[in-house]
């Protein structure tokens, strides 16, 4: 419920129509949470090992890069923007970590900071281009993405290199044999998101996404909010690159590319509206988790991994059609 744009009334006494309630739940991530849990229950039923700490951590590790990328993308999509640079940022971070591995916990912290800085820089460029130069977001980020891909190729021409061992082992490990570290990273991101939601900036992101003109006339600095959203997004992409490197242990200048379209799929699946102003980070993370879980479930059901995409695509279309229907019912009321 963290992400409902208009938080639910504390007392049930307030009159909220059933349709409005349904819409809020769906857009707040309720729908995707339900799908995820149902899918997980099914997965547990057909694959008894699914509930072991090891498998959960494995799934979590697989999910986290996509989840973080989708979380970042959500900032931009809430603003009614597009951001293609996600792939480029992840690639740059990945090759940087592979070319310049820094050992030990200190090195890991430095690496993480570096990834955040790379993401923030690219995000700032996007934010200036979209917020201040008023370029179309999809066109501007297309350009920055191509440039980022080029930079990644300059840093590392062909797949190779090694990510520092500390990152590879510790970031994919479990604390006390139970809690996956990658899960903690996501939890930390969610916590930050909850705090951001309770700042003027957080509220402004939703306002700008829903009605830019009204937001401006209400005294919101639209350009700054927009640029800020891109910077936040970039930092999360950086973190996604960091976690992806821990996962793959090696560098690949194209490592971000496969995540690009999936990240959009995760955001849409979570119910965040591409028209802006509705949705949230939690929903997108669940969207990403569902896409990855779907892969596992299909594999366990004996369906060739070739066909995973057909299911992912169909689920995506169904989810968007469904939440669109719900939104329309809500608006009519």
């Amino acid at each position: 419920m963290i992400d409902t744009t208009a938080p639910l009334a504390p007392s049930a006494a307030r009159q909220v129509s059933a349709a409005t309630l349904l819409r809020r739940v769906v857009q707040g991530g309720g729908m995707i949470l339900f799908i995820y849990l149902a899918l997980y229950a099914y997965y547990g039923a057909i694959e008894p090992r699914a509930l072991r700490a090891h498998s959960i951590a494995d799934l979590m590790n697989n999910t986290v890069p996509l989840a973080l990328a989708a979380a970042g993308l959500t900032f931009v999509v809430l603003n009614r923007g597009f951001d293609l640079s996600v792939a480029g940022v992840i690639s740059i971070c990945n090759v940087t970590l592979a070319v310049a591995p820094l050992e030990g916990p200190g090195g890991a912290a430095l690496s993480a900071l570096m990834c955040l800085a790379i993401g923030a820089t690219v995000g700032l460029v996007n934010g200036l281009l979209v917020g201040y130069a008023r370029l179309q977001s999809i066109a501007a980020t297309l350009a920055t993405m191509i440039i980022c891909q080029g930079i990644a190729l300059v840093i590392l021409r062909a797949p190779g290199g090694f990510v520092s061992e500390w990152i590879v082992y510790e970031m994919t490990d479990r604390l006390w044999g139970v809690i996956p570290v990658s899960g903690l990273v996501v939890a930390a991101v969610l916590l930050v998101w909850i705090l951001i939601r309770r700042t003027d900036f957080g509220v402004s992101i939703y306002a700008v996404g829903a009605d830019e003109q009204a937001a401006a006339m209400s005294g919101i600095n639209v350009r700054r909010v927009r640029a800020g959203a891109y910077v936040c997004a970039g930092m999360l992409y950086g973190l996604a690159g960091f976690m992806l490197s821990a996962q793959t242990a090696t560098g690949n200048p194209n490592s971000g590319a496969p995540l690009l379209l999936l990240a959009f799929a995760a955001v849409a699946l979570g119910g965040t509206s591409l028209a802006g102003g509705r949705g949230g980070v939690f929903a997108s993370i669940m969207g990403a988790a569902t896409l990855m879980l779907l892969q596992k479930v299909l594999f366990s059901s004996g369906i060739s991994s070739f066909y995973t995409g057909m299911f992912q695509g169909s689920v995506l279309i169904l989810a968007v059609v469904f939440s669109g229907l719900i939104a329309r019912i809500g608006e009519r009321k």
């Binding site: 744009t5 208009a6 509220v203 306002a207 829903a210 009605d211 009204a214 937001a215 919101i220």
Partner: peptide
């Protein structure tokens, strides 16, 4: 702003 509450709108920014 349509997706914010009455109170939020009154206090913006």
């Amino acid at each position: 702003v349509p997706n914010l509450s009455v109170a939020q709108n009154l206090l913006l920014p």
